[in-house]
Amino acid sequence: MESIIELEGLSVRFGKLEALKNLTGSFSGRAIGLLGPNGAGKTTLIHTLLGFYTPAAGTAKLLGRDIRKQDKETRALVGYMPERDSFIAGMTAVRFVRMMAELSGLPAEQALERAHEMLFYVGLGEARYRPLESYSLGMKQRAKLAQALVHGPRILFLDEPTNGLDPPGRERMIQLIKDIRDAGKVHVILSSHLLRDVEECCEQVLILKGGEIARFANLEEERQANKKFLELEIAGDAEAYVREVAALGCESARAGKRRIKMILPPELEIRSLYEVAARQNVQIRHLDYKRDSLQDIFLKAMDLESLGEANHGRA
């Protein structure tokens, strides 16, 4: 699979502060979430990839293009929705999005057509002739998304896209991001401190801590792996039940009188657990997959003492 972001010892300094420390890794997901506490370096990483900051050491490549040597070529491939309120005052939304499209290289007529299309797409069709300064926060967010998409980028950087939105506004934004992701034409890089946003939209997650990569995880693989971890609550002879399932290759541990935690071997189906229960005259009152949520992954990453081994992305 084509690598969309390659980091090669990327470091960024602001005076004495080292904001990004020797980041190395290669990432190729359709939707990658950037997570981390405030000051972890999420926005700095996006800004560096966009060429706003010059790396102190190392470099990065977007779709194989070096951000230092081929900066304009690289920026032609990306769309960027900034975190902060960003617009050009005194312009209607359609004029604003059209100008941004032209700056990205679309001829004037196509730019106008795309501006209309994108504003309808993000749900601002009826308000597209209104000045941007008259927009609500949610509308401004969607106008920013429209300008980021208008030129048809291959990578879309979204920096805290749901910031300050009310629940319906957030839901609408998340739905748009999912739709863009599912269209399959754009790689989405979503930076957020809201785990729920990342969990809903992203397949992979890159967790930053103190300017370093704390963890790179494929959420789908994590979910698949977690399907082999079970929690059961039974009524009956737990000892005998555990003994018989152990003979099938299950590792188990008692977590109370009736509760059992279990790891299934890959070839064993859950049906076998019910068959054993029937033979032993044991009732399975409750069976659940252990869900290692993004929150667990994030919290584990934040607790890592040594970042050495996790300092390389596993894309």
């Binding site: 706003f52 304009k72 900034p82 941004m100 700056l103 990205s104 030129h151």
Partner: peptide, 8 residues
């Protein structure tokens, strides 16, 4: 940022 994130 809107201008400078483009090929400008």
């Amino acid at each position: 940022p809107l201008y400078l994130s483009r090929p400008i």
